Computed example of a mutant assay.
Amino acid sequence: MKKTRKLHPGERLISWLLLLFSLFLFHQAYRISGFGGLSTPGIFPLFASGVMVACMLYLVCDNWRIARAGQEQKSRLETVLGKLLPLKIVLFTLMIVGYMLLLQPLGFLLCTFLFLVLSFLYLGRLGLVKAILIAAGAVGAIYAIFHYLFQVVLP
């Protein structure tokens, strides 16, 4: 009995984006030296990106065939975004962006300490005291290693 495959939400979109990326890489590989012969510098990147394009074309056509066969119900944008970008990932990404923005004004040690405490509280579901102790230990270890062992001045 043949098992039929169902498409996951967003699978067709991702395969199309990867096909476009593969075509871009193929174009860039061609621009390295053109196709003057088998010993030119761009032949390996051209071959590798050509394999990528061929594989992605196969995948896009296969996904199209599965969707046309009616095995996939049309998924709404919320379903796709819910699968690809869960709220926990979006919020943690925003925390990383905040860390990057506050790194210069607050300095490395304080900003890293705050980021770790908030990360442990959010992701690890630790208590405040435990999160502070673990973050302080990690920042202390980072400081000791980089300042004394590598002799690097941290910002």
Rank of each mutant, 00 (worst) to 15 (best):
I142W: 01
L46R: 03
I145E: 10
A67W: 13
L85H: 03
G82A: 09
A136K: 07
R12L: 06
T40S: 10
L46I: 00
P45I: 10
L17W: 04
A135V: 02
T93D: 03
R125I: 01
R5S: 14
L59M: 09
Y143R: 14
M1H: 08
Q151C: 10
G36Y: 02
G82K: 03
A138T: 02
K130E: 00
Y143H: 11
G10P: 07
E78G: 14
Y122P: 11
S119T: 06
T93I: 07
I14Y: 13
R5T: 15
G36Q: 06
C61T: 15
L133E: 01
A54N: 01
G37Q: 11
L101H: 09
M52Y: 08
L85S: 07
D62K: 05
L133D: 00
G10A: 07
L38K: 08
L102V: 12
L85Q: 04
E11Y: 05
K83D: 05
G137A: 07
T112V: 10
L25N: 08
Y99C: 02
Q151K: 15
M1Q: 05
P9T: 01
I14T: 15
L109E: 13
C61K: 14
R68K: 15
L126T: 00
V53D: 00
M95S: 13
K6W: 05
S49M: 04
R68S: 15
G42N: 06
G70Q: 12
L149Q: 05
E78Q: 13
S15T: 15
Y30E: 11
G124C: 02
W64G: 13
R65M: 04
V152P: 06
L123D: 01
R125F: 00
L106A: 09
Q151S: 11
A138M: 04
V60Y: 12
Q73T: 09
S119V: 03
W16H: 05
A48S: 15
L106G: 10
L25C: 12
L46W: 00
R68Q: 15
A29F: 04
I96Y: 10
F21T: 13
T112E: 12
F47G: 11
L123C: 03
H8T: 09
A131Q: 07
F120R: 14
L109F: 10
I134S: 05
T4H: 09
L59T: 14
K88G: 04
G34D: 03
A69F: 05
L57M: 15
A136Q: 07
M52V: 10
F26D: 03
L57R: 10
L154Q: 13
L114G: 04
L114K: 04
L109Q: 09
F24E: 12
P45V: 10
I14G: 09
V152M: 09
R12G: 13
L20Y: 11
Y148G: 03
G127D: 00
L19K: 14
L87G: 14
L20D: 08
M56L: 11
A67Q: 11
L106Y: 08
R68P: 03
G34A: 12
L110G: 04
T93R: 08
A29D: 02
Q73I: 01
Y143Q: 13
L116Y: 06
L85V: 06
S33V: 02
I145C: 13
K130H: 01
V90F: 06
Q151R: 14
L85G: 00
A67G: 03
E72C: 01
L114I: 11
L91K: 09
W64E: 15
F146W: 08
G50Q: 00
H147G: 01
V129H: 00
L91W: 05
C61V: 13
L25K: 05
L13K: 11
V117K: 03
L19Y: 12
